[in-house]
């Protein structure tokens, strides 16, 4: 199979799963409204249908980006970074004194990071935000002279940049890895990463709804259960193993990578939940119907992408 055929095969599988999910969602809704006219379908079933509908949109967008290849992936990632960063900074405590620093974050750091990824300048895109933005942004802020809650403010902005821009840019950066015998097929690494992360999220949700009993982190994320976690991680790792044919890995290695990805995704969801809880909100935004904000969907990918990138780079790139 050529790379194109493999991508088509995976997307065909995704569409097939979505068709099945859509049918299940509609059947559940019809059955719920047939049972009793007064309450109608429960909020869980309505939310499930909204989530499935949103998945159609998200899969379409990703598919379009893939059609355009490298530039499509980079533009889509940059737009997602922008959307995520605004959600993140909206919930922070920045003051007028941060205005220039924020402008620099949104309109300089973000585009520069993705331009560096486009030019495949690993030596700079891997340190641009952790070093240059880290040291220079507080300077921009301090020039404005407002010292009130200074540490808190610059930390929040830098955290936003690291998560929403730096970490996320490791998804398109996978295209820059030169793996012997895998030339020109790096798009499939993105398919593997995004596919495993997102199915892990979905499977944790499904296992949690079907078999969830014991809460795993009640004070941080009351919806997460031990059963959902274990079922989701194991089944997503199996799925990752089943996708070994699109990767440079053996089935065992693919399973191990998928396991690491799902674990990082779970941790990411937990950390981001803690931030939301601290800020007194349930979701990061309301951009995606049924899911919440962009960051609610990206949190696990943000934590998984850099680790996946560097593990592959360390072991597979000579």
């Amino acid at each position: 199979m050529t790379t194109q055929e493999q991508i088509l095969a995976v997307f065909g599988g995704v569409v097939g799963i979505l068709v099945v999910a859509t049918i299940i969602g509609r059947v559940l809704r019809r059955r719920a409204s047939a049972e009793g006219p007064s309450p109608g379908p429960s909020s869980t079933i309505q939310n499930l249908n909204a989530r499935i509908n949103a998945w159609w949109t998200m899969v379409t967008l990703i598919g379009l980006a893939f059609l355009f290849g490298k530039i499509g992936i980079i533009v889509l990632s940059a737009v997602l970074s922008l959307a995520a960063l605004r959600e993140f900074v909206t919930l922070t405590n920045t003051r007028q004194g941060d205005h220039w620093a924020l402008l620099a974050a949104f309109f300089v750091a973000l585009p520069v990071q993705y331009i560096l990824v486009w030019y495949e300048w690993y030596g700079l895109y891997s340190i641009f935000i952790p070093i240059y933005a880290f040291l220079l942004m507080p300077v921009i802020a301090v020039l404005r002279g407002d010292t009130q809650r200074f540490l808190e403010r610059i930390t929040e902005v830098h955290w936003g940049l690291m998560l929403c821009v730096f970490c996320l840019s490791h998804v398109p950066a996978l295209l820059t890895l030169d793996i012997p015998g895998y030339e020109g097929r790096q798009l499939l690494l993105i398919v593997f990463l995004v596919g495993v992360v997102q199915t892990s999220d979905v499977l944790q949700y499904v296992w949690g709804k079907l078999a969830g009993r014991r809460k795993i982190a009640p004070s941080v994320s009351p919806a997460k259960t031990v059963e959902g976690f274990a079922g989701g991680v194991l089944s997503a790792s199996l799925l990752g193993a089943g996708l070994w044919w699109i990767t440079p890995f053996t089935p065992w290695q693919a399973a191990l990578f998928a396991f690491v990805i799902t674990m990082m995704g779970f941790i990411g969801g937990l950390v981001m939940s803690a931030i939301k809880r601290d800020r007194g909100v349930k979701d990061w935004g309301r951009t995606i119907e049924g899911h919440g904000g962009i960051l609610d969907r990206l949190d696990s990918l943000i934590f998984a992408a850099p680790i996946f990138f560097h593990l592959v780079r360390y072991f597979w790139v000579p």
């Binding site: 922008l82 605004r86 900074v89 007028q96 205005h99 402008l103 949104f106 309109f107």
Partner: peptide
């Protein structure tokens, strides 16, 4: 867009 600034930061 705080008082006195010209370029807006795209927050929600």
């Amino acid at each position: 867009l705080p008082k006195g600034e010209i370029v807006p930061v795209p927050l929600l």
